[in-house]
Design a protein around this nucleic acid. Structure first.
Length: 592
RNA sequence: GGUUUGGUAGCUCAGUUGGAUAGAGCAACGGUUUUCUAAACCGUCGGUCAUAGGUUCGAAUCCUAUCCAGACCA
């Protein structure tokens, strides 16, 4: 039982004893005591007026006195208006501190039986990953790790969009203009090479459209008539008919892309337990269409197309199957959802997909509920905002996208520059330096993208992202590295016995209080599916530690008990920073 | 037109189920190194929480309308 649960129980008892009334735990509001007041936990008593029939101030006074005499953990209290500020005993905090140090899994919750599948990344195989994908990947990975820490068993899945007209475009352009170029022959990363031909296609396509318009065709007509697009469509047709030549080319170019993605994923530090390929799932869902027709959830129009009517739920009529019997996106997604459940039987299924698809998922989930799927309750669309640049929106056609691989390299370079200019690591071996620059550069990038609430749009300012000051990963990493340095210098052989109850100075107490919120923060972050909560918590923790560190030099401390407490606090702070960062997919350096 | 998300300091963002005088970081200005890492710490400056109503002991937070921005649906 954590501190707030204990206090809620005590407050409930006090009210029963003082006013002979029982209240719901939800009505008991606790909050962190503000810095300017004495105490660590504050009970809001305004709403208890009805129970006691007295003024809030008097009620608070009475509850405070009851708690102080009847509970060991509350050593003192004070009342400000309707706020009852409670001081928690030093003994309690010392116990808390010992628990933090000794508990190997401090911060991770008990294992639950619930299983969560989280689908993220989901790239197209016609071009390399860009900044928008980076946000998606980091979010997906991080939420997976947070859920693990909260005790869930997590399956990370990636549904790769490996078929369709887009990949045919790259294939066609490569066939026409590639001269057999391969990643080996050109030394271009596979995904970038395929992306190059996707761009090439677009250029040719535009040229043809321009020519057609000049010969008097309207723009919409020209877009349909251009020979190259017709050829691409024919290629897709061949692919669907299993033409072996097309399939071979498709396999070859996709394998290049996968090699490239693999490198990018490794660099980003994300991973997957299961890959789904659209080429294998795009025909799924037809059975569900039949099922829906049988159950009367769907209906057929005169032209034989299948629809669902969601107007009663404030949505529209939605096409499920075209009149020629071919699927649309949602058909496949219905089938894939079913498939995932058959594969894993998970309780929750999270889709990490941009907010432009909110409507799509609303419809998808609603249909599955209407079909009476038990597991539809656990479906969740983790929607996130676009990433904008100071110069405006990212547009792949206008070449304003930020490429993921290039971005990561730039971040690492910048970390190198800044670190070298400090000149503190000259004695470090080069291999270690390279690892460090990577940790700092990628940490900065990841933290910058994760510290913002996912649902908000994100303004990515390259200059600011590499700033190593303020609310950034390098600041927190630096705090961690400094703790390690402290622990190396002082004798870190902790004497647990000597951590007996003593008067804790305020600075020390403040850190324990801050650290004690860690488990709770993880649970909230898991519930909200929001890594930003962890990120902001870690920044607060690093700040509090730095203040403490500044005011409490350990080496010069002669009082052994105090020294032990300070070492203990350093140990547990380091533990929290490291565990917290690992949930964000960021590693911490021992030295920097 | 309809649905939906956002609007908090010059900039980037926090702000738990409604709670105390709305908080950080950056930028600007000033200060702090005989100590285990100054990539640090402390201080000053900076706000009509988009606007107007409403709900109540109490609203950045909940409700209604409007304005602005984004996304989606037709």
């Amino acid at each position: 039982m954590n501190l707030s649960e204990q206090i809620i129980e005590l407050v409930n008892k006090s009210i029963l004893s003082l006013y002979q009334k029982k209240i719901d735990n939800k009505e008991i509001v606790l909050q962190q005591t503000r810095k300017e007041f004495e105490g660590e936990v504050t009970l809001v008593v305004f709403s208890f007026g009805k129970l006691s029939g007295k003024k809030p101030e008097q009620t608070a006074q009475e509850i405070g006195e009851w708690l102080k005499t009847n509970s060991e953990i509350i050593s003192d209290f004070n009342v400000v208006q309707g706020f009852l500020n409670l001081t928690i005993s030093d003994e309690f905090w010392m116990e808390e501190l010992k628990n933090q140090i000794q508990n190997q899994n401090f911060g991770s919750a008990q294992l639950k039986t619930e299983k969560v599948l989280i689908e993220y990344s989901s790239p197209n195989t016609n071009k390399p990953l860009h900044l928008g994908h980076v946000r998606n990947n980091l979010l997906g990975y991080s939420i997976g790790e947070i859920l693990k820490a909260a005790g869930y068993s997590v399956i990370k899945a990636n549904l790769i969009n490996d078929r369709g007209i887009h990949i045919c475009k790259s294939m066609l352009a490569w066939q026409k203009f590639g001269n057999g170029e391969s990643p080996q022959s050109s030394a271009i990363k596979g995904d970038h090479l395929v992306g190059k031909y996707y761009v090439k296609f677009d250029q040719e396509y535009k040229k043809e459209i321009q020519n057609l318009i000049e010969s008097g065709v309207t723009e919409t007509e020209a877009k349909k008539m251009a020979p190259i697009i017709i050829e691409a469509q024919q290629m897709l047709q061949k692919w669907e008919n299993g033409d072996s030549e097309v399939l071979d080319l498709w396999k070859k170019m996709n394998s290049w892309v996968y090699e490239g993605f693999d490198v990018t994923y490794k660099m980003l530090g994300v991973d997957f337990d299961k890959f789904y390929y659209e080429s294998q799932t795009y025909l799924l869902g037809k059975e569900i269409v039949d099922e829906g027709l049988e159950k009367g959830v769907f209906f057929r129009k005169e032209d034989n197309s299948v629809w669902v009517d969601l107007t009663a739920d404030g949505l529209d009529e939605k096409l499920i199957l075209r009149s020629d019997g071919t699927s649309v996106y949602i058909t496949q997604d219905l089938g894939t959802a079913q498939q995932k459940f058959e594969d894993f039987g998970m309780d929750q299924s999270i889709y990490v997909v941009g907010n432009e698809q909110e409507y799509h998922f609303k419809v998808l989930f609603l249909i599955l509920k209407k079909l009476g799927k038990k597991w539809a309750q656990g479906l969740y669309h983790l929607s996130y905002g676009m990433v904008d640049l100071p110069s405006g929106k990212m547009k792949s056609r206008e070449g304003t996208v930020v490429d993921a691989d290039e971005l990561m390299q730039e971040m690492i370079e910048e970390a190198r520059k800044q670190t070298e200019s400090l000149g503190k690591l000259d004695s470090m071996p080069d291999v270690e330096k390279e690892i460090l620059y990577q940790q700092i550069g990628l940490g900065a990038l990841k933290y910058y993208l994760l510290k913002v609430d996912p649902k908000k749009r994100l303004l990515f300012d390259p200059a600011e992202s590499i700033d190593l000051h303020g609310n950034t990963a390098p600041f927190i990493q630096y705090t961690y590295a400094r703790i390690q340095s402290v622990l190396r210098k002082v004798n870190s052989d902790l004497n647990h016995e000597s951590l007996n109850a003593i008067q804790l100075p305020k600075d020390e107490k403040e850190i324990i209080v801050q650290l004690s919120y860690f488990p709770e923060t993880i649970l909230i972050a898991a519930k909200e599916r929001n890594p930003a909560l962890i990120a902001n918590y870690l920044f607060e923790t690093a700040k509090v530690y730095n203040r403490f560190y500044h005011s409490s030099p350990i080496a010069t401390e002669s009082d052994n008990n105090l020294k032990n407490i300070r070492i203990a606090l350093s140990v547990s702070t380091a533990k929290v920073l490291k565990n917290g960062f690992s949930m964000l997919g960021i590693s911490v350096p021992e030295k920097m």
